[in-house]
C-alpha cells in the first residue's frame, strides 16, 4: 500500500507542469523514505531528478518499494482537474496498475477521485556523484527565467562564463548578439532576491537554450534557483521545493567534436 497526502496540492500541479514537456514518461519510485523520479529527455542530453521526502508530506505511507510508470501528459490532464487549494492524496495498492488521485477542496465540500492508468517503463538509473563545482550561482528563479527567455529570442545556444567579474550569459543569432552579466548582489533584504556567486575557478560552457528555457518551467516552485558549473561537465540546475524536496536538471554542454 502506498499513500501520500499533501495539503498544498498546487505543488504537485506545478511539478508536473515543470516536467511534462521535458520527459514524456518515467517511473515514480516510491519507498518508505519518499518518492523519486529520474528520467532523461528523448535525446538523452538532459536528465531530470525529482526527490520528494516522506516527511515533506502531511501523511505518507509506503509498505513496499514500487516503480509506478507515469505518462506525464496524462497525469497533467488529471491534475488540471484539481483546484489550486485542494488537498491531493496519491494512493496505490501493491502491484497496482492504477494510481488513484483524490482531490479534496479546502472546506471538504467537494471530493473527487481519478484513476490514472500506470505504464510499464524500463528505466535505467544513473548515479549522480556529489561533487564540488567550479562555480555555483544562486539567483532569483524569475531572473534566470527572464535571462533564458530573452536570450532564446536571439540565439540557440548560450555561453555561460563565470569569472570574478560575475556570471555572463552570451548568445548570437541572425538579429545580432546579446550579453547579460549578473554580479554578486547580497544587498536586497530578502534572501530570495539575492544573487550569490561562489567561484572556485573561472569556467565557461555552452548550452542549448531550448533546454535551459524548459528548466525554467519550474520557476513557480521556488523563489531561487542554483546553477552549478564545472568544465566539461553537465550544468546542474536545482530548485528547492520548500520542505518537500527538490527538482534537479542536468544538461550536457555543447562540445566541439
Amino acid at each position: 500500500m502506498f499513500e501520500a497526502r499533501i495539503t498544498q496540492g498546487s505543488v504537485l500541479k506545478k511539478l508536473v507542469e515543470a516536467l511534462k514537456e521535458l520527459v514524456t514518461e518515467g517511473n515514480f519510485d516510491v519507498s518508505s523514505t519518499g518518492l523519486t523520479l529520474q528520467a532523461m529527455d528523448s535525446s538523452h542530453v538532459c536528465l531530470v531528478s525529482l526527490t520528494l521526502r516522506d516527511d515533506g508530506f502531511d501523511h505518507y505511507r509506503c509498505d513496499r518499494n514500487m516503480a509506478m510508470g507515469i505518462h506525464f501528459g496524462n497525469l497533467s490532464k488529471i491534475l488540471k482537474c484539481a483546484g489550486n487549494e485542494d488537498t491531493i492524496t496519491l494512493k496505490a495498492e501493491d502491484n497496482a496498475d492504477t494510481l488513484t488521485l483524490m482531490f479534496e477542496s479546502a472546506n471538504q465540500d467537494r471530493i473527487s477521485d481519478f484513476d490514472l492508468k500506470l505504464m510499464s517503463i524500463e528505466s535505467e538509473h544513473l548515479g549522480i556523484p556529489d561533487q564540488d563545482y567550479s562555480a555555483e550561482i544562486k539567483m532569483p528563479s524569475a531572473e534566470y527565467q527572464r535571462i533564458v527567455r530573452d536570450l532564446t529570442s536571439i540565439g540557440d545556444t548560450v555561453l555561460i562564463s563565470a569569472t570574478k567579474e560575475g556570471i555572463k550569459f552570451s548568445t548570437s543569432g541572425d538579429v545580432g548578439t546579446a550579453n547579460i552579466t549578473l554580479r554578486h548582489n547580497t544587498t536586497p533584504e530578502k534572501p530570495e532576491e539575492q544573487t550569490i556567486i561562489d567561484l572556485k575557478e573561472p569556467v565557461a560552457l555552452t548550452f542549448a537554450l531550448r533546454y535551459l528555457n524548459n528548466f525554467s518551467k519550474a520557476t513557480p516552485l521556488a523563489p531561487q534557483v542554483k546553477l552549478s558549473l564545472t568544465k566539461d561537465l553537465p550544468i546542474f540546475v536545482e530548485y528547492q521545493v520548500g520542505d518537500l524536496g527538490n527538482v534537479r536538471f542536468f544538461l550536457a554542454p555543447k562540445i566541439d567534436d
Binding site: M40, S43, H44, V45, C46, L47, E124, H125, L126, G127, I128, P129, T157, T206, A208, L233, P234, F250, A252, P253, K254, I255, D256, D257
Partner: peptide, 14 residues
C-alpha cells in the same frame, strides 16, 4: 561540428 554527449557518458549506470 558542435555536438552534445549523452547523459550516460557523464554518469554511470547504477
Amino acid at each position: 561540428a558542435v555536438g552534445q554527449k549523452s547523459m550516460t557518458s557523464f554518469f554511470a549506470k547504477k
